Amino acid sequence: MRYYFDIFDGDHWARDDIGVDCAHDRGARYQAVLALTELARELLPFDGPEKELTVRVRLNDAVAFSVRLTFDTSFGPALTDSSVIERSDPRH
């Protein structure tokens, strides 16, 4: 079966018109998770606001399922207190 992987980068959808042949939904899910981890490497902020990435998997025009990753940085002592950073750093 031919699956299509549309990508939402938090702002815009990019429609996949090429697709990938997979034997079943499990194989398509693996491909979607793999694509999502590659996107995360490129698009997740090192600091700053939250970011949501989604891969929507389609069979022709019917949505089969979606895989979503939400990234959020919560501020706390580890990000603002240098003594916490120094204690947690294995080089110290």
Rank of each mutant, 00 (worst) to 15 (best):
T73G: 03
F65R: 02
H24E: 13
E38M: 10
T37D: 08
A32E: 03
R26T: 08
L69K: 06
D17T: 10
D89T: 12
T37I: 05
D6K: 01
V63M: 09
P77M: 13
L59K: 13
D9M: 05
P77K: 15
R68I: 07
M1V: 03
G48E: 08
A62F: 13
G10N: 06
R87V: 01
F46L: 07
D16S: 06
E86H: 08
A62Q: 12
T54R: 15
L39Q: 11
R58E: 03
R29T: 02
L34T: 08
G48C: 08
M1E: 03
V33Q: 10
L44G: 01
G19Q: 06
D89A: 09
V55C: 08
L69R: 09
A14T: 10
L34K: 14
A78Q: 09
D6Y: 09
L79Q: 14
L44K: 04
A32Q: 03
L69F: 15
L79H: 11
E38Q: 14
Y3Q: 01
P49A: 15
G10K: 02
A14K: 10
F5W: 07
S83V: 02
Y30P: 00
I85E: 12
F5T: 01
P77C: 07
E52W: 04
A62D: 13
E52K: 11
I85V: 10
L59T: 09
F65Q: 02
D9G: 03
D17A: 12
D17C: 04
I7V: 11
R87G: 00
H12L: 06
S74G: 05
Q31A: 13
V63W: 04
A28S: 08
